[in-house]
Every structure is written in C-alpha cells, then in structure tokens.
Design a binder for these strands. Sequence first.
DNA 1: AACGTAGACCAACAGGTGTTGACAGTCCAG
DNA 2: CTGGACTGTCAACACCTGTTGGTCTACGTT
Lengths: 193, 193
Amino acid sequence: MTGTTEDQQAARRSDATRAAILAAARERFVADGYEKATIRAIARDAKIDPSMVMRYYGNKAGLFAEAVAIDPGLPGLSLEPREEIGRTLVRHFLTLWEENGELAVLMRVGATDPAAADRMQSVLREQMIPLARRLGHEPEQAQARAALCVSTVLGLALTRYVLRFPASVALGREEIVDWLGPTVQRYLTAPEP
Amino acid sequence: MTGTTEDQQAARRSDATRAAILAAARERFVADGYEKATIRAIARDAKIDPSMVMRYYGNKAGLFAEAVAIDPGLPGLSLEPREEIGRTLVRHFLTLWEENGELAVLMRVGATDPAAADRMQSVLREQMIPLARRLGHEPEQAQARAALCVSTVLGLALTRYVLRFPASVALGREEIVDWLGPTVQRYLTAPEP
DNA sequence: AACGTAGACCAACAGGTGTTGACAGTCCAG
DNA sequence: CTGGACTGTCAACACCTGTTGGTCTACGTT
C-alpha cells in the first residue's frame, strides 16, 4: 500500500521525462537516421541528461525499438468488393506512410540492421500472407503473391519517402492508386501467368 | 620524357596495391555496409597500412565512390518488339543485380546518404526517363511512368537483395519476369488509367 | 519532522573512428 | 654512383560514441 501509487502502473513523476525523451528520439531518428542520431543530441532536445535515456530505455537499441513501434494495422480489412482490394490496399499503405514519418526511418535502418529488417518482414509474414490465404490461395502461392505486393508498395515508399526521387514525389495520391491498384489487384487475384 | 612512363597513365608500381585496396573495399562494403566497414579493416584485408587508403583515395567517401562505380548499362536497348519491353527490362535488371553485389550496398547507403541516393536517381534521370520518352510519351508522362518502373524494380531489389525477405528470395527468376514484366509493360505502354 | 527512495545531474571511462605527419626502404633517371 | 621521386610503415592526434558510477535534490510516506 503505497497510497496513491498502486503496484499497477500509476502516474509516476517521471512519465513526463519519458515522454519527452521518446518524442525527441522520434524527431531525431526521423531527421538523422539511426547512426547519426546520437543519444547526446536526443537528450539535449529533451533537455535532460544522456544518462536518463539509459536509465529508462536500457540502451540505444531499446530506445529505437520503442520510438518506431508502429502498428501496421491493416486489421480486419474485410475482403471488400474483391475487385477493389488492390486499390484499397494501396490507399491504406499510402495514408500509413504519410502519417508515420517513423516508417521511413525504420526502412532506412532496416537496410542496415537485421532486427529492423525483421520488423518490416513481420508485416509481410503476419498480415499480407494471411490476407493472400484468405483470398483462397495455397500457402506457396500466397507467399509469392504477398511478396510481390509488399515489394510493390515498399518500392514506391522507397523512391518516394526514403530516396525522395523528384519523379516519384511528384506523383499525385490518386495517380498512384490508379497505377498501383491494378498491379496489386493482379498479384492477388489473377491466375498464375 | 620520362622514358617508359609517358604522361598518359603508365603501369605504376602501385597499381597492384590500388587494386588490392579496391577489391578489399568492395568485399567489406558488401559484407558490412558503409559505416561498419572501417578503413582499418579494409587495409588489414589488403595487407597494407590504413594510411595508404587515404593516400590513394583521399578519404573514405572517395574510396566508396570508386568501389561502387557500376555501369547501369541499359545502353542501346533497342525498343524491341515493344510488346516485350517490359519483360526485357525486368530480365536486364535481374541479371544486373545478381552480378553486382555492390548494388545492394549502394542501396543500403542510399537509404542514409544523399550522395548515394543521387547516384541511384541518376539511373532514373538519365536512362529510364529518356527511354520512356523514346516510347513516345510527353515529358511529364514519361517522368511518371519511368518513376513507376524504377519503383517496381527497386521494390523487388529491396525485398530480395537488401532486406532478404524469404518470401521474396524464394521467387524464381522466370517467375519474377512473368509477374513483373506485364507490370512494367503496362507502366510504359498502357494509356493513362 | 525525519527519513528513504526515486529522479535528475555531472564527470569520467573505454573503445573505436577517420585522418595526418614524420620517417624508412626502393626504384629509376641523370 | 647520386639525386629525387615513389611506396610503404609507424605512431599519434583529435574527436565522438555509448555507457556507467557517484552525488545532489526533492518528494511522499511514516
């Protein structure tokens, strides 16, 4: 009985600091990437001491893990009119990437760090492949088709949000849906070529 | 008149060392990526002193630039039967990526370093967009279509050669051509959706 | 009011980085 | 044979990194 602070998580005095660190970490990681975003810089932004970061998040990797914890969340996503699932998926990913700048960092880091790469893969493993299976494909086929879909959207994300090729950035949102929608649709529903 | 060594480049005694450095650098960059591939490690592999690297290549960035200098080389690439250009392009990129492991490193670095990103973009700017123009598209359209094609092949390269998603690695070469060929074909030749 | 504890700070460590300069061996032209 | 230029080596510099232990402060409970 510690009075107001039960053993279930109560409002600790340090919560504000924790949040400040996490916010600063997100910004720094997004702006500078993993390597160049130093703990010292993050601490400076959060106006605390670097050692606090270690105290609350263990180490740099732990901080990064919590900073980029994003829910891919193509949750229920009912199979829709089925002729529109391609366009629906593309729209979904587009908003996801535009709302979460951390995804670009996750991808930047994934290019170097296997752990981050695995986190990206989990989207394929736990979301896209099951989705392909729900569309009636056999395991092997589902795996191939899901890989093609992920490759499609990640390719766009790469050129548009990570490498920032002007030609890719210039594309309009609906323009992308119009071009990529049918592609994903074909990967998911067309018979094997 | 320096005798055998004219002012045009002659066989210097240090050429062997230069080559050894470059070879070791390629291996290390491919294996470890840019940051983790230290000059000391490269020098150790080449069995020379780290200072030689600086002497011959100026700095680490210069060494990297020469180590990953690859010719994208979709050179003449006649417009073919035109119904086959999609598949032809996909095949071309596939062999290019399988023969040059350095491309994966270039992409890893491009995710972080703007200079490397720009080098990748140059392929789009100087090769794909002109190709789209040769197919009869107006500048703006050519830019969009070329961006989609590059996004397609880079997406595959990302999941297959950089992130190494098992589902993407498992795809067979001709399987990829069969799926991605029509996609690229459509991006290049289909009317606007 | 006194105390124990958690929050925050400071200074330092140990390790690794790219890079530089001074020195020794080697080859070839004069 | 004697310069001087070219290769190569050694040791050190200056810097920055993540991380740690000790110390002060202030709160909340007893």
